[in-house]
């Protein structure tokens, strides 16, 4: 189908984008890679009056070494993130998770900023960024602010971004070699969204687990941390029984949704199984 008519505004800088959003208010929608927005517009589930295209905002593209963290520009495509040497060296888990998004064509166009701002609970980025304790940077007419991943994702297709705010960067911690990681995505077919996903980060410390972080995809309206699992693993021996016991707690306190793919009890089961696999692979990686 063909999208409803809209006014098209192409901006060349973040400042211009912020101005355009302030000028047009609620009627304006930002366009990044378009791989969530255009499908919705074709189905007329999204009918923006004004589309503000970030495609030419070069300052939003690329990955920068910012000392103790990496700064990824919001318009950096999934393809660029996956193949970026800095990301691969310091935050390999994001490269791995990004490689699970859609298919090559989708990854050539879709951006990290769009994947975050879209706020889809079934998206692969949110759980990973939550596990990483990543920080989002946003700009509005008043200036720039930082939002932690834990505060950023607020509901189904909802984020902490205000209508006149542009997400400019995602800040990622640099993980040294003591961290292992793995993302387990359960899907009906390879190209599809996660029915459930589990992203694990494990810091090894002399045969023990110094710290474990687990982010879960699609186990609620926002990405969640498997806090029960994380608590049991802190300081635990890096042994199969400890992992099994901890993974059994992965779904504690979650309220998984029901849809045509799965009911809540099945999603909880998947969370436990995928968390165990992700932890095992993290330790082996």
């Amino acid at each position: 189908m063909i999208p409803a008519p809209f006014e098209y505004v192409r901006v060349g800088s973040v400042d211009e984008a912020v101005d355009a959003l302030s000028e047009h208010g609620e009627e304006a929608t930002l366009l990044a890679g378009g791989h969530s927005l255009l499908p919705l517009m074709r189905l007329r589930l999204a009918v923006p009056e004004v589309l503000v295209d970030l495609g030419r905002v070069d300052e939003l593209r690329g990955v920068r070494d910012a000392g103790d963290h990496l700064a990824v520009g919001a318009m950096t495509t999934h393809h660029q993130v996956m193949s970026d040497p800095l990301v691969r060296e310091h935050c390999g888990v994001l490269a791995e998770v990004t490689g699970e998004v859609g298919d090559p064509q989708v990854r050539h166009r879709g951006t990290i900023g769009g994947a975050c701002a879209h706020g889809d609970a079934a998206g692969d980025h949110p759980a990973c960024l939550l596990a990483l304790d990543a920080t989002m940077v946003a700009r509005d007419p008043g200036g720039t602010r930082e939002i932690t991943a834990a505060d950023f994702f607020t509901g189904i297709f909802e984020t902490a971004l205000a209508p006149d705010e542009v997400l400019t960067e995602v800040h990622l911690p640099k993980l040294d070699g003591s961290w292992g990681f793995d993302y387990q995505k359960f899907q009906r077919v390879k190209q599809a969204w996660a029915i459930v996903g589990a992203c694990a980060l494990v810091r090894r410390e002399d045969g023990r687990i110094g710290e474990a972080r687990v982010g879960l995809t699609n186990l609620g309206s926002v990405p969640v941390r498997a806090t029960g699992t994380e608590r049991l693993l802190a300081g635990a021996a890096a042994e199969p029984d400890a992992l099994r016991e901890a993974a059994a707690q992965a779904a504690e306190g979650t309220q998984p949704p029901t849809d045509s793919n799965a009911r809540p009890d099945y999603r909880r089961h998947l969370a436990r199984v995928l968390t165990l696999r992700a932890l095992q692979n993290s330790l082996a990686s």
Binding site: M1, Y8, G34, H35, P39, L43, G55, Q105, V106, R109
Partner: peptide, 27 residues
């Protein structure tokens, strides 16, 4: 398709494969 899934519309744009049903001509 109407869902960006099938890839029948794939073209190469600036060296990269893209689904031309999910790109605006202005882009």
């Amino acid at each position: 398709c109407d869902t960006s899934n099938c890839g029948a519309c794939t073209v190469v744009m600036d060296g990269l494969s893209v689904k031309s049903c999910t790109v605006l001509a202005v882009q």
